[in-house]
Computed example of a mutant assay.
Amino acid sequence: MAIRRRFKPQPRRENKNPHNINNKILASEVRLVGDNVEMGVYPIRQALSKAEEMGLDLVEISPNAEPPVCKIIDYKKFLYEQKKREKVMKAKATKVIVKEIRFGPNTDDHDYDFKKKHAEKFLKEGAKLKAYVFFKGRSIVYKDKGEILLLRLAQDLEEYGKVEQMPRLEGKRMTMFIAPKTKK
Rank of each mutant, 00 (worst) to 15 (best):
Thr94Val: 03
Arg6Met: 05
Arg85Thr: 07
Asn36Tyr: 03
Asp57Thr: 06
Glu86Asn: 08
Lys8Gln: 04
Gly104Tyr: 05
Phe103Asp: 12
Ile73Leu: 11
His19Pro: 01
Arg6Pro: 02
Arg168Phe: 08
Leu153His: 07
Gly161Asp: 00
Arg4Tyr: 10
Pro11Leu: 06
Lys143Leu: 14
Gly146Lys: 11
Lys8Leu: 06
Gly34Ser: 07
Gly146Arg: 14
Ala27Leu: 01
Leu26Phe: 03
Gly161Val: 04
Leu150Pro: 12
Asp113Arg: 13
Lys184Trp: 00
Arg168His: 07
Arg152Val: 13
Lys181Ser: 03
Met39Thr: 14
Phe114Thr: 11
Ala131His: 10
Lys145Met: 12
Glu125Asp: 05
Met54Thr: 04
Lys121Trp: 03
Glu164Asn: 05
His19Ile: 02
Lys83Asn: 15
Ala91Arg: 12
Glu164Pro: 00
Met1Asn: 05
Ile101Lys: 12
Thr182Cys: 00
His19Arg: 08
Gly146Pro: 14
Ile178Ser: 06
Val88Asp: 00
Gln155His: 15
Leu153Phe: 12
Asp74Cys: 12
Lys99His: 11
Ile101Trp: 09
Arg168Ala: 03
Leu151Pro: 04
Lys184His: 02
Arg168Cys: 00
Arg6Ile: 10
Lys183Tyr: 00
Val88Leu: 04
Ile25Pro: 00
His118Phe: 10
Leu79Met: 15
Leu129Arg: 10
Lys162Met: 01
Lys71Glu: 00
Met166Arg: 11
Ile3Arg: 15
Asn36Cys: 08
Asn22Leu: 02
Asp113Gly: 02
Ala65Met: 06
Lys76Thr: 14
Arg13Tyr: 03
Glu100Phe: 06
